[in-house]
């Protein structure tokens, strides 16, 4: 194969200040630096952290930048946005879970129907008559 020099991206640094914890009284902010190229999404940054400095950072996503699964909503500098559309920028970016929702952990919130919110699977199973799974 011929040796051809292909363009490589100019890498920049974003500082992400991210809520870590389970509720307002039990959490704190952590700051992380993440490398990015222009056009990368906030979700790219979060996944990069999960593969690097913060392997236990909790956040919800699936389709990874296609913006169809609608799982990755977070608060970015105070405004709710899909992390897969919002672009990373140099300087500081604040990341919080979507407001007014029960926080499960870090950026993950409880999105279940009202009648199941707050109930763990074990609790749901025990509250149902024995003999049937549901």
């Amino acid at each position: 194969m011929n040796e051809v020099k292909y363009q490589t991206a100019v890498m920049k640094t974003a500082r992400l200040r991210i809520w870590r914890g389970t509720c307002a009284e039990n959490g704190h902010y952590e700051e992380y630096d993440v490398q990015f190229e222009d056009g990368d999404s906030v979700l790219d940054g979060l996944v990069r952290l999960r593969y690097g400095d913060a392997p236990d950072l909790a956040f919800q996503f699936s389709c990874f930048n296609a913006n169809v699964c609608k799982e990755c909503a977070v608060q970015i500098d105070g405004a709710v946005e899909y992390a897969c559309i919002a672009k990373l920028k140099t300087g500081l970016t604040h990341l919080d879970p979507v407001p007014d929702q029960r926080i499960l952990r870090d950026l993950l919130i409880d999105t279940r129907d009202r009648d199941r919110k707050g109930a763990t699977l074990r609790h749901q199973v025990q509250s149902i008559a024995p003999g049937k799974g549901h």
Binding site: Q7, E37, G39, S41, C63, N67, V68, Y82, I85
Partner: peptide, 9 residues
């Protein structure tokens, strides 16, 4: 492949 594109498969 390029330019960097997010928000679309």
């Amino acid at each position: 492949l390029a330019p960097r594109m997010v928000g679309l498969d």
